[in-house]
Design a protein around this nucleic acid. Structure first.
Lengths: 340, 340
DNA sequence: ACCGATCGTCGAACCGGTTCGAGAACTCAA
DNA sequence: TTGAGTTCTCGAACCGGTTCGACGATCGGT
């Protein structure tokens, strides 16, 4: 393999000069710069990443910690991964993907070994075990998801409170008076998925303020249990005319359930979900939904992370907690209620 | 950050001795080994990955090249990624994920810079542009997907020919005489997705041998176009009683289409897909399908790759091309035909 | 003609590991 | 008591980059 010494020799200069010629960090005569560049291209020189990382203490790699939990809906997670990966690439960084179920251990290894210059945590829990490890690490970190304690990290998340409010207001404004809310499985909440509560509490409160009844249930995120649960829910509340979904798997399963009950939206039931447009297109979900903007959140997280890595921010620049405002994408699945 | 020199000093030995004590590559007195281990734990020593990679020319990282193409169904790809990531972790390797649309360039950079010890290519095309780059690289590579030329790489794929045969034989054995096959969009084929042809040709041939008519069409992999196409297909062939799907997006959209037409499987139409069980559960698809085994393929690829990296295989041990035998998972969506 | 500043280049040191060859200390047999 | 063979440890070199300080040449000013 050709190294910078080979390039220097072939160009008839010292190693250091070749380095400066390629990096431009010191002035070099045009003549030499040209010759070095030429020789480097000719020999197919590519710097050794390990050596460069060692010398500069910059790996140009961002760690991405994603956990694929059996009770989470994996396709939704993929969109965040894509957002992060694409943005990182645009900014010149590679992505080291860890799917280790033992998040704290994986994070510690990645940061201590200096394989990564910074870390993005997905699916952050209220009391995330990875956070103490991250705070102790010398590298900066950015989160997608809101933890209880945000000190020392940059945080990005959808504004789930506002999302809950918007969903309910949309339906009550149309005249609905009995609503159903399908959340993530209780298991997700126990593990600290605070966003479930954030949306639900805001929805409950808004419904109360608008004088509507709201029944909230937790549904599993796997099949076929979720189909049964949706049926049971609709059976239990025959008077409900509006359905809110904060559970991607439930949204994916709903078309079949509606079919089995011979119901259509919005004629029989108004439906509003909370998932990304990309998700809706992939699964041809015909329901209006609050955009969860995974690509945007991924991009924001990486952008901020890179700013910290590259010290554009003062070492102790205040950390940010930034919420993306929810937007309702209208796919025509809501209308004024009709008695069933 | 604590390095091996700090450990050595605290333990009162030379750097080299500390290294040997930790790696066990030379005999070291019990006394010293114990003391070094103790001190290392106490100081929280973790070896610097860049330095180690430089010294050993082993990064303990595997490159994973996945392309998220707009006309491919991303959730299906995720399953391969998970299979690869989990197996790599079990074997002590980290995963560098590249989603760069310019595959050849990304691959060249990863291998030339020695960031990775080996590479897994997903979604390999008949005439994949990444292959010449991979063959020129000093690191070994494993593919998921069958290219035209397999020299110099290890290849793993589902046996799509056998899958096509099995699907058709299953339905003809039940008495079906007019079948429909929905493949991936033509765009995928043009790009070299040979698996589409492999399954289709085998299906056509088998149908002919069994005396059945088979109409093959290509459907888009995005919404809402695919729903329209499925409707058009069923309109055009009112006598068809069996539907084969080699297109995940079509499978995901089918429940809604059947609902809209007031059809049910298998009463009105027998359906057989080609996707993983995980996929079926995630989207609650009630159709029998040929298992595409992405986790298994991912695992096989990584296993073989690691064997090559660690030279358990002779440098020129013959490369393998291994097909996974298709298995039909019965979900009760097929039955003898009934005239529509 | 001389002096100081600027420019371009070089050699050496460094990042943090691993590995090789050599030497000290000790064992055991002749 | 000597010599051969082990066992353990050490110093030095190396992997392939980057960066610092120094030095000679060139330039402009007086």
């Amino acid at each position: 393999m050709v190294n910078i010494g080979d390039v220097a020799r072939a160009a008839g200069v010292a190693r250091s000069t070749a380095s400066y010629a390629l990096s431009g960090k010191r002035s070099v005569s045009d003549e030499v710069r040209r010759r070095v560049a030429e020789v480097a291209a000719e020999l197919g020189y590519t710097p050794n990443a390990g050596a460069r990382a060692l010398a500069t203490s910059r790996a140009m790699v961002i760690g991405l910690l994603a956990q694929f939990l059996p009770d989470e809906f994996a396709p939704a997670m993929l969109q965040y991964i894509q957002g992060v990966a694409n943005t990182a690439r645009d900014l010149g960084y590679d992505i080291l993907l860890s799917s280790d179920p033992d998040g704290p251990a994986a994070l510690k290894r990645l940061t201590d070994s200096r394989m990564v210059d910074g870390v993005v945590l997905l699916n952050v829990a209220e009391d995330d075990e990875r956070l103490p490890v991250l705070r102790a690490a010398p590298q900066p970190g950015a989160l997608v998801g809101l933890p209880g304690d945000c000190t020392g990290v940059d945080v990005f998340d959808l504004d789930f409170e506002e999302a809950g409010r918007a969903m309910v207001e949309h339906l009550t404004a149309l005249g609905h008076r009995e609503l159903l809310l399908v959340s993530q499985p209780e298991h997700v909440i126990e593990r600290g998925g605070a966003y479930v509560w954030r949306l639900q509490n805001a929805a409950v409160e808004t419904a109360a303020r608008r004088g509507a009844a709201l029944h909230a249930v937790h549904a599993p995120s796997s099949q076929p249990a979720i189909g049964r649960d949706l049926h049971a829910l609709l059976d239990a509340h025959p008077g409900a005319t509006g359905l809110l979904l904060n559970n991607e798997a439930a949204a994916a399963a709903l078309p079949t359930v509606l079919h089995e009950r011979r119901l259509t939206a919005p004629a029989d039931l108004s439906v509003v979900g909370r998932y990304s447009d990309e998700f809706a297109r992939t699964f041809s979900l015909p329901f209006s939904s609050i955009e969860s903007a995974p690509d945007r959140l991924g991009r924001m997280a990486v952008r901020q992370l890179v700013r910290r890595i590259e010290k554009e921010l003062d070492d102790e620049a205040p950390h940010v907690v930034r919420f993306v405002a929810p937007e309702l994408v209208d796919r025509g699945s809501t209308a004024p209620p009709r008695t069933r």
